[in-house]
Amino acid sequence: MGAGHGRTDGLYVAGDGRLHRLPAEAKIVATVGYVVAVVATPRDAFWAFAAHGALLLALARAASLPVGALVRRLRIEVPFLAFAVFLPLVGTGPRIDVVGLPLSRAGLWGAWTILAKGTLGVGASILLAATTPVAGILGGLDRLRLPRAFTAIAGSMVRYLDVIVGEAERMHVARQSRGYDPRWLGQARGAAASAGTLFVRSYERGERVHLAMLARGYTGSLPRLCAVPATAGDWATAALLPVAAALVTLTANLR
């Protein structure tokens, strides 16, 4: 019940630079534009991928973000890269020997593409999350006219994640306090029962939230609340990243 910072804003790094202050919708569009430019980059234009990475690095430095911490967040993509590792082994077509291992040429290119484009895409998303609070991102998506059902569901998830995880943690402590220390699968009944209870409690909370919404005049559609749109200047500033990335991609395609 305390006022701690929750799990949902854990990716945000507080700051007051131009990048932090840009309206979320401009940053979201810029991120998508950048990712599109990266995806369109020819796979053998290594220098272009380096240039795309340099753009992200420059932005992170300009926003005074801790680059090391941001790079560590790239670990999120490890499960996807694990899939890429198998591509050279299971790929078809001509093979080349790498330290005595016959690897598929097409598979190697596939793995490289996933590694390079995936990492840059995730990097751009990490940059967006580090400079925009979750509520801002939701507001930005709302101003971009994403269906309200989507932003409302995402908003509820963000809002109640802390509440539900907190509840689960309290139940866990209460179980442990009564000597519950499961070591075998057969002893998991307590945890499973808690999960069921948590589901029922969350469902009941959902009903109470709905009731409280009705009490404030909710009739089935959520009003659009955030009315301050990005200015032309904001859009122009945000466009610098995708435009620079597009120029890199264009040059790489022309060579």
Partner: peptide, 29 residues
């Protein structure tokens, strides 16, 4: 509009991502 109910658990009442959005929810409706 005439009757404002404040429910027992504020976590049931405050469901929007920001304080401002939540306070605006009723009048916006």
């Amino acid at each position: 509009r005439r009757v404002g109910i404040v429910f027992q658990d504020p976590d049931d009442q405050l469901f929007m991502p920001t304080v401002a959005d939540d306070v605006a929810f009723g009048p916006a409706n």
